[in-house]
Simulated assay, not measured.
Amino acid sequence: MLHRENKIRKYHTSSAADLIRETMDYYKITQTDLADRLGVSQKHISEILRRKKFISETLALRIETVMGISSVLLLNLDLHYKLRVAKENQPEDTNGKSEKFLKRYDWVTV
C-alpha cells in the first residue's frame, strides 16, 4: 500500500555470485564440488563468490551447462554490478556534469 511515510529502499544490484551462491545452497553443493564440475579450482570459485573475481564468458557457459543458469543472465548481472560499484566510487560532482563534459563552441564553423 502506498503511504507517504514509507521509506524508499535503495536498489540492490546483485552479481552473478549471488545467484550462484543461491543455487549452490538450494542444491546443497560445496565450492569444491562445483569447482570440480566446472573444471576450475576451489580458490577460483571462492574468489568469484567473494566478488574478488568475476566470471568469464567461458565460465558462464560452463555454469549454464552444469547449473542451468543462463550465461547471458550471469554476465549481465556481473556487468551491472561492476558498473554500479564504479559509479559509487566516482567522485561527486556539484553540478551533475564533469568539467570535461563535451561542449559546443560557438566559434567553430562546419
Results as ranks from 00 to 15, higher is better:
residue 82 K to F: 00
residue 19 L to I: 13
residue 16 A to D: 07
residue 16 A to Y: 05
residue 97 K to R: 12
residue 50 R to L: 15
residue 28 K to Y: 06
residue 15 S to D: 10
residue 22 E to D: 13
residue 79 L to M: 13
residue 54 F to C: 06
residue 86 A to D: 14
residue 31 Q to W: 01
residue 6 N to S: 01
residue 89 N to S: 12
residue 54 F to V: 07
residue 90 Q to V: 10
residue 78 D to P: 03
residue 105 Y to M: 13
residue 70 S to T: 00
residue 42 Q to L: 00
residue 22 E to F: 05
residue 19 L to S: 07
residue 4 R to S: 02
residue 1 M to I: 04
residue 17 A to H: 01
residue 98 S to V: 00
residue 24 M to I: 07
residue 98 S to P: 01
residue 83 L to S: 07
residue 19 L to A: 04
residue 31 Q to D: 06
residue 75 L to Q: 06
residue 52 K to Y: 02
residue 109 T to L: 14
residue 33 D to H: 10
residue 16 A to G: 04
residue 77 L to H: 00
residue 1 M to Q: 04
residue 96 G to P: 02
residue 95 N to R: 12
residue 96 G to H: 03
residue 95 N to F: 08
residue 81 Y to Q: 04
residue 85 V to I: 12
residue 94 T to P: 05
residue 25 D to M: 10
residue 1 M to H: 04
residue 6 N to R: 04
residue 54 F to Y: 12
residue 103 K to M: 09
residue 33 D to S: 09
residue 50 R to Q: 12
residue 104 R to W: 15
residue 6 N to E: 08
residue 37 R to D: 12
residue 37 R to Q: 12
residue 101 F to A: 15
residue 101 F to N: 09
residue 103 K to R: 15
residue 29 I to G: 02
residue 45 I to P: 02
residue 8 I to D: 00
residue 2 L to W: 05
residue 44 H to T: 14
residue 61 L to I: 11
residue 98 S to T: 09
residue 63 I to K: 01
residue 91 P to L: 07
residue 18 D to R: 03
residue 84 R to D: 07
residue 29 I to R: 02
residue 34 L to F: 06
residue 58 T to Y: 10
residue 66 V to C: 06
residue 5 E to F: 05
residue 40 V to Y: 03
residue 98 S to C: 10
residue 79 L to P: 00
residue 39 G to I: 05
residue 83 L to T: 11
residue 67 M to N: 03
residue 24 M to H: 02
residue 19 L to Y: 04
residue 98 S to Q: 06
residue 92 E to I: 13
residue 108 V to M: 14
residue 51 R to Q: 12
residue 56 S to H: 04
residue 78 D to E: 05
residue 88 E to R: 11
residue 92 E to N: 11
residue 103 K to A: 08
residue 23 T to K: 07
residue 109 T to A: 11
residue 18 D to K: 02
residue 92 E to G: 01
residue 79 L to E: 13
residue 109 T to R: 13
residue 43 K to G: 04
residue 36 D to V: 00
residue 40 V to S: 05
residue 90 Q to F: 12
residue 107 W to M: 09
residue 46 S to Q: 14
residue 91 P to E: 07
residue 98 S to L: 09
residue 56 S to K: 05
residue 82 K to D: 03
residue 79 L to I: 07
residue 98 S to N: 11
residue 29 I to V: 15
residue 48 I to S: 03
residue 108 V to P: 02
residue 9 R to D: 05
residue 89 N to G: 11
residue 108 V to F: 09
